[in-house]
Structure formats: C-alpha cells, structure tokens
Amino acid sequence: MNIFRLAGDMTHMFSVLVLLLKIHTIKSCAGVSVKTQELYAIVFATRYLDIFTSFVSIYNTFMKLVFLGSSFSIVWYMRYHKAVHRTYDREQDTFRHWFLVLSCLLLALLIHEKFTFLEVLWTFSLYLEAVAILPQLVLLQRTRNIDNLTGQYIFLLGGYRGLYILNWIYRYFTEPHFVHWITWITGLVQTLLYADFFYYYFLSWKNNKKLN
C-alpha cells in the first residue's frame, strides 16, 4: 500500500458516499444516470468475485464490501424507491449501455492476462469501468445545470483513477516485475474520459459560478 493508492481508495469511497448521501437525504437522483450506476455495480460484482476465495487484507475486504454495497443500493434507490425514482430523468438518460457491456465482454475474451473464468471477468471489469462514466457524461451534457453534489461525485470518481495511475508509477519503480499493461491502459483511458469534465469543473470553481 502507498499513499497514492490510499488516497485513490479514499477518493473513490467518498465519491460513492457523496452520491449515496445525496440520494438518501434529499431523496433525489436528479442529474444522475442510473445506467452508469448499473455499470459500476457490474464492475464491482465481476471484479470482486474473489472476495471470499482470496483474502488480501481486512482493508481490502472491507472496501470491496463498501463498493459492492453502495453501488447496488444506489441502483436500488434509483430503480425501486418511489420518491427517488420520481426524480430520475428517464427521458434524458438514454445511453445504450448494454452495448458497452457486450463489447467489453468480447474484448475481455480476446485480450486478457490469463484465460481463466475469474481473470477474464476481472479484465472485463477493467474495460467496463473505463467506459462506465459515459452515460453519466452524456446525461450531464443534456442536463442544463447540475447540482454541486453530482458535480462533486463525478469529480471524485474521475480523480480516484488518476491517483491510481500515480500508484502504478510508484509501484513500477519500487517493485520488480510490477507490469500490468491492461490495468494501466484502461486506467489511463478512464481518466482521460474525464478530461473535459475536469476542465469545465475547474473553470466553474475558478470563476465561482454554477457548473453547466
């Protein structure tokens, strides 16, 4: 564990907690794409399949449960909680995200480190996470202005993988044979997808005006 990875995990945890808090307290999911939340639930479900078979540390298991629990409860709130579901913007959240699932699955069957069930699904979860934010970014461009909590959620979510990139650089120089091209490339693509969001988020913060 290094400071970059810890910062990345904390940033990631705060992003999902900010969203869960927003939905739970003000009973609103305005501006939030349920498709991105469903994709993230699939990402965690397929990445953490080994949660019971290979124990890494208490921290690792605890964080996996946090991410699994939060992503599935966010989807549940947005789909089945009456008050929250009423605030869901079904007309605008129209990204065909199942195509993303299918193409990532095909890609994982083609490009992976080892051809085993767990490894292919783990690789699939990396590909899917890289593009999971797309429905949310598309919804963002359609929604006139977004509330601060949703903006903070996306900012933290985009930032966490950026911190992971620093972690990979650190581990590359401190651990022999630490080379994982698939993880690195998917992490880079994922972070780059947030580039223009970060730009507008920074502008709105600098000019102290609403993000739109």
Partner: peptide, 10 residues
Amino acid sequence: GSVSGSHDEL
C-alpha cells in the same frame, strides 16, 4: 492469500 501483483488492488 496467493494474489498476483495486480489483484491486490481494488
């Protein structure tokens, strides 16, 4: 546990 390098991350 026997985790390969990359699977010790979240």
